[in-house]
Design a protein around this nucleic acid. Sequence first.
DNA 1: ATGTGTTCCTGTCCGC
DNA 2: TGCGGACAGGAACACA
Length: 283
Amino acid sequence: MPELPEVETVRRGLLPVMEGKVIAAADVRRPDLRWPFPDGMAARLTGQRVERLRRRSKYILADLSSGESLLIHLGMSGRMLISGAPLGQFHHDHPAPEKHDHVVLDMEDGTRVTFNDARRFGAMDLMQTADAEAHWLLASLGPEPLGNTFNEDYLIDRLRDRNTPIKTALLDQRIIAGLGNIYVCEVLHRAGLSPKRKAGRIAAPRVAGLVPIIRDVLAEAIEAGGSSLRDYRQADGELGYFQHTFRVYDREGQPCQTPACHGVVGRIVQSGRSSFYCPACQR
DNA sequence: ATGTGTTCCTGTCCGC
DNA sequence: TGCGGACAGGAACACA
């Protein structure tokens, strides 16, 4: 999926077309994605103004005038596509939805927002805005890595005594919410830490050092509009460009970027996922 | 309570 | 070209 920077980029792209705007019509074209859509989703979206469009971890939340919030998760391949009001000015003049266009939102001004998700690991749900934090998908999420509650003391505490590799620990959304496979690989490379190191066996100062690295990598990626791999694009169709600055992710066999390091990027599989790293400078 | 492997689904790419 | 297998940004779930 889109990881935190990609989701934030999608949110920012949707902001001008959704926030403060009314959903004139909702077309729910299949009963489910990863899970069934909530009962009456189309009717519960129709006529609602989007009061606020916010993000929690890799989830987008649209707070509606009804007091409900729409939760959007993009899974691995989800995209939110924006198309402008057609010349005919009526939403039925938009081109017909394509394969994998599962939910179509027509805004009152004629702009169309389409949730497209080939692999269907994505999700949508509705809940009371007041109860959003308690939603089962959000309840056990750890702190936002760019927020204040994520800090050195917190991370040292959470990694203490963990027997799992640091790679796996940083992917655990209960410890820190928003990192995915790309950014964990990049963070560990910048930190000079092997993905195989047991989380609980890393000295506290090194764990502390991860905190600003995580913040920097995510902030840089957001600044770059996320990473465009395969099918991911920003909501407006633009490509992000952070992928050009990957130091290890998807660079197996290529030279390590660390100054004076003559290592070669390798790939191992950890809990079923590829870890890219330099065996020479990540220890 | 932790840690690991499997699973959902479609599309793409690579080697034969 | 066709076909099979590996792999893909996530994360819930079942099981040791």
